[in-house]
């Protein structure tokens, strides 16, 4: 039968042995990190962004690299998913982008701070994470036959980065605002132009935010929206 002395040897020996292996693997991990995390892309802006991330405890609502809280979206691929421009508009006024939904803190970030946060999130998005977060593998099985968008012209890129977060076309996109299929049959070009320039002026209290579009962007969007008969 096992004696107490042998049991102790098992404990002490095992602990020392596995600690040694663990330390060796740690050294190797640190050696591999510069390549896996693209250290050369870690600019001063990225590091400042991480400071903001920590000082504001964003991890107390969000997960990043799958770590944190489960109250707000996972942000490892946020820049891929939403695009830098969308995140910039969002961070200026988070609640305007999701009217009436679960609330994010209204930070009064300066434009430089927003740039830093986006740089940080962009750097995170390029880390080699062994495939996390995974692509949804069951999506094809449940895709509902989607209605093709009844549009003629090409979709402005801006629409795909910003507007889809709230509006759907052809069954794809966000649900915050109304679907824009057939919008041209409801609204004319002149109204659309005024609307996009400043929704609040057209309809005070509306949940659609002023997105600060340039004249060119607005013209391009209106030209495309009027084709959605």
């Amino acid at each position: 039968m096992l004696t107490k002395g042998q049991a102790r040897t098992f404990f002490v020996g095992g602990t020392l042995f596995f600690s040694a292996i663990f330390l060796a693997l740690t050294v190797d991990t640190l050696r591999q990190m510069p390549e896996r995390q693209n250290s050369e892309l870690m600019t001063a802006s990225v590091v400042r962004g991480k400071m903001i991330w920590e000082n504001e405890n964003c991890m107390g609502c969000h997960t990043i690299l799958g770590e944190g809280a489960y109250y707000a979206p996972e942000l490892t691929r946020a820049v891929d998913r939403r695009g830098e421009e969308w995140i910039r508009i969002f961070l200026r006024d988070p609640q305007a982008m999701y009217p009436g939904r679960r609330k994010m803190v209204q930070y009064d970030f300066s434009e430089e701070q927003i740039t830093d946060v986006i740089a940080f999130l962009g750097w995170i998005g390029q880390i080699d994470t062994n495939g996390f977060p995974p692509e949804p593998d069951m999506a094809p099985a449940v895709v509902v036959a989607s209605v093709p968008a009844a549009s003629t012209g090409p979709r402005p890129a801006y629409f795909d980065t910003i507007c889809v977060a709230c509006h759907s076309v052809g069954g794809k996109g966000g649900l915050v605002g109304p679907a824009l299929d057939g919008v041209a049959s409801r609204i004319d070009a002149e109204y659309l132009d005024r609307w996009l320039a400043n929704p609040q002026a057209v309809k005070p209290g509306t949940a659609m935010p002023n997105l600060g579009l340039t004249d060119d962007q607005r013209a391009e969007l209106v030209a495309w929206l009027v084709t959605l008969q």
């Binding site: 990190m33 896996r36 690299l65 062994n130």
Partner: peptide
Amino acid sequence: YYYIGAPE
């Protein structure tokens, strides 16, 4: 360490 950027 699976999915935080550490080696495979």
